[in-house]
Design a protein around this nucleic acid. Sequence first.
RNA 1: GGCCCCAUCGUCUAGCCUGGUCUAGGACAUGAGCUUCUCAAGCUUAAGGCCCGGGUUCAAAUCCCGGUGGGGCUACCA
Length: 482
Amino acid sequence: MVRVRFAPSPTGYLHIGNARTALFNWLFARANRGSFILRIEDTDIERSKENYVGSIMSDLRWLELDWDEGPDKGGPFAPYRQSERLRVYEKFAEKLLKEEKAYYCYCSDEELKMRRSAALKAGQTPKYDNRCRDLQEEEIEEFKKKKKKPALRFKVPDKRVIIDDIVRGRVEFDTSLIGDFVIMKSTETPSFNFAVVCDDITMEISHIIRGEDHLSNAPKHALLFEALGFKAPQFAHMSLTTAPGGDRLSKRTGATSIAYYRETGYLPEAMVNYLTLLGWSPGDDREILSREEIIKEFKLERLSRSSEALDPNKLDWLSGIYIRKTGLDRLTRLCIPYLKKAKFIKKDAPEADEFDKLREMVAAVRDHLSNISQIKDHVDVFFKDKFAIKDKEAQDILKSAASKNVLKAFLERVEGSNAIDEDLFNNLVKDIQTKTGVKGRLLYQPIRIAITGRIHGPELKLIIPIIGKESCVRRVKRALNS
RNA sequence: GGCCCCAUCGUCUAGCCUGGUCUAGGACAUGAGCUUCUCAAGCUUAAGGCCCGGGUUCAAAUCCCGGUGGGGCUACCA
């Protein structure tokens, strides 16, 4: 039975790297009919914040990475927050202590820090010197009198640890390089390395899929699994994702958080597709893959071993494809918040005919979008009747005699007709052509500029029917009089 | 510093395990062209890469060794 977990610490927003870890865990679970578990690693009380728990969960939901067990929905191994699992860690700690696989350490923070920097200065590997491992009774009594709160350290056995990693292959570590590490802090909370192992044991995790930054921790974990009498799960350490320049992903820079992409209006399915392509490929040339296809093809063995940089260009490309592919109704609904924010519309839920009109607008400009927030930059021509033509080239074009003739002919035809639709517009263009002898760009451009104020934009036959007869007349008159 | 991981176009990758079919394939971005208005989209096309040095072999992107570069870890952070 495959059981995997995503275990974020709520110390910040979900960023791209973590989202990718969650995604690959989820994919592996779904591909193997296993369970995907969400566990909150909040033992660092200082840095953990409740609102981050909420934002991480809502980002996961947005990406549609549903979990089978988690803090909000419970499950057979509840609770799923480390802060609520202290009893578990205490029990395992007691066990190790009783079996003399762990011991109390009375060294203070300052002492540890001093020894550390001294070792560093002397060019030696800084590691705990295990000095409390064989403390005499009297010494312990002495410390107790001083009321020093001890930390519990794990006795690291001297051996070679072999990690058989699904993506890295066989990796060997020599434990002589690892000092006895803390498993329970003097605050009586578990260290990260200990909590992870206790939880993975009790939650019966079968595969640990996480970032490569944990590869060096893996031997510690393997040692703990063994000491506690359990077989370690399968490890799969995935390569790390970097920011576009190759720099480390920071929780501080905005463009790396899932929330940023959500707010900017990337479609979740585009995001999932893009993230999947980061360090994974189906083995052929396919790049546009549905969730179902990805699940079908997903193999941990195909994860790339080298780290990968985020490429905003490629995301935009993919995102544009999904925007063009999605249903117009859905796309329009998704555009509404942005249109409202830009004050083009007033209501969150427009009436049917307003919605229909919006849908036409969206249809006219959707080819231009690589994310939904960009909608506001393309629809202003539909809403703004009055505008100043600032572009010098556009001004010059309007000034020419040919342009004026075109516009006059256009005005005449429009005023004499009913509402303009696409067919009418096409006929109208033909008429102007025969009447004025102007054709091609010389004909279209003045109309475009008069009506939109710009030299570029979507096809006129699409936008003019949306703008409507009345507004077109006003706009052209204004252009002729300027 | 020590330990560990990684190394194919600018970027994401296929190929590597099981050497030959690789004069290294695809995608994004870039340049050019096409598309009876422009832009966008779409289509066509060009340029661009096996980190370096040894070795093994008839043959190496692929196997081995060394170097270089990048990254991670080295906490009573997670």
